[in-house]
Design a protein around this nucleic acid. Structure first.
Lengths: 140, 140
DNA sequence: ATGACTGCAAAGACTTTGCATCTTT
DNA sequence: AAAGATGCAAAGTCTTTGCAGTCAT
């Protein structure tokens, strides 16, 4: 028995925000974006809808960065870069894991692989530069 | 000015537990393992030492699974499989991301890539079988 | 009218932290 | 004796949930 799905203005607005940004936001970020136009929006509703989107394949989690789960409305395969310093998450649209790996893992380890995530960690260009500055001008 | 590091029985015990398991445990799991032999151990100490190990390159985080951060004392490059059903984390010692990718990302996107994680998600063999059972014998 | 969706606030879960005490050096 | 490490418990964050009211169908 499928549970019926109904239209909701808030849900639509939440999905729009998620689709119109490329910052891979947290629930809180989405909430703050919508607050001005939807003063009665509740953070709980944002969480509930993000879960809904994941369950329906409209969004996916990029993982937890600095304690907050981050979401992505792009569900086609692509990789991510996460800055260890500021937490920025970037898409790497041209980088894919070797397509044979998924099958290779399934075969070698007797696992039902559904998804594969390739994630790079390091410093984004902005944090990289600041780190350079620190080296040149250490705190007093 | 480097902060001095002192020996500690608890720290050693925590690292041993982490090294002697391949389950990629959470802080709580490590704590429960040590409780019998170290009744006065505190969960806070486990968290503090796991952070210490990460800062000193003795361990790394595998990510957050079902709300709990999971740790690994193996810091050499290898990939992981995470079961979406039971949360089991497995090493895939023979699976590596294409070694050229890291440089490729650094070059193409002007990022200082430090680390690369390749993670597969799906059902482990045990959960896979149970799912099969559900299909054959749906709940009443 | 039914039942899905939401706001609100409380509860829950995980992790961090302040401070007094204990240990290592 | 000095300073790092720990226990304990409180506090902090992020997320989930119960319930009454609202809205879509």
């Amino acid at each position: 028995m499928e549970r019926a799905v109904r239209y909701s203005k808030k849900r639509e607005a939440i999905l729009s925000v998620l689709r119109e940004t490329n910052c891979h936001p947290s629930a809180e970020w989405v909430y703050q974006q919508l607050k001005p136009r939807h003063p009665d929006l509740s953070l709980g509703t944002v969480y509930r809808n993000l879960a809904f989107f994941q369950a329906h394949g409209l969004a996916q989690s990029v993982g937890v960065v600095s304690g907050q789960e981050r979401f992505d409305a792009i569900v086609t395969p692509h990789s991510h870069f996460i800055c260890n310093c500021c937490g920025t998450v970037l898409d790497l649209p041209e980088i894919f894991p070797d397509s044979g790996l998924k099958q290779s893992v399934s075969a070698q380890y007797e696992l039902a692989v559904q998804r594969c995530e390739l994630t790079f960690y390091g410093l984004c260009s902005s944090c990289s530069q600041e780190n350079q500055n620190f080296k040149e001008e250490p705190l007093s």
